[in-house]
C-alpha cells in the first residue's frame, strides 16, 4: 500500500451464535472478504448498544455493520427483534444528523451462510471505499 492511499476501517459487530459462525464458515470455506473488516464478537446482536456504533465512528471507523441471526432464529429467542427496532431508529437518526447512509448497515447472517457473509462484507467495504474517509463524528484524539 502506498502512502496516503485510503484504506477504510470497517467495524463488524457479529453475534456469537449465527454471524460469527458464519464468518468462521466463510474462512474455512476459503472465501475472500476484505481485510478492512474488523470483527467484534458480541453475545447477541441486541448487545450492540447504540453507543458502540457512535463510539466506533468517534474512534475513526469509516463504516459500521451489525450482523445477527435471522429474525426468529435468535439464540435468546427475542434479542434480534429488539435490535431491529433499535438499530432502525439509530440509523435513521444518524442519517438525519448527516452521516451518509452507506456507512451503516445491518444484515442477518446465519451460521450456514458463509457465502452470504463474504458477499455482504465485499459489498459493504466497496460501498465504504466509494464514500471515502469518514470525518463526521470522528475525534482525532481518540484515533489510535
Amino acid at each position: 500500500m502506498s502512502v496516503g492511499e485510503f484504506k477504510p476501517l470497517v467495524v463488524a459487530f457479529c453475534c456469537n451464535w449465527c454471524s460469527y459462525a458464519g464468518a468462521d464458515l466463510a474462512g474455512t470455506s476459503r472465501l475472500q472478504y476484505p481485510a478492512e473488516v474488523k470483527i467484534i464478537k458480541v453475545p447477541c446482536s441486541c448487545r450492540v448498544n447504540p453507543l458502540f456504533v457512535l463510539r466506533a465512528f468517534q474512534k475513526g471507523a469509516d463504516g459500521v455493520i451489525i450482523c445477527g441471526c435471522h429474525p426468529g432464529d435468535c439464540h435468546y429467542s427475542t434479542g434480534n427483534y429488539y435490535t431491529r427496532r433499535r438499530i432502525t431508529l439509530l440509523y435513521s437518526m444518524l442519517d438525519y444528523l448527516g452521516i451518509e447512509k452507506g456507512r451503516t448497515h445491518l444484515e442477518w447472517v446465519s451460521a450456514a451462510e458463509g457465502v452470504k457473509f463474504a458477499t455482504v462484507m465485499n459489498k459493504f467495504v466497496e460501498q465504504v471505499y466509494e464514500l471515502g474517509e469518514n470525518r463526521r463524528l470522528e475525534d482525532w484524539r481518540c484515533k489510535s
Binding site: 427483534y81 432502525t88 440509523y91
Partner: peptide, 9 residues
C-alpha cells in the same frame, strides 16, 4: 410487521 433497518437506506 416490524420494518427492517434497510428501510432507512
Amino acid at each position: 410487521q416490524d420494518a427492517e433497518p434497510s428501510i432507512v437506506y
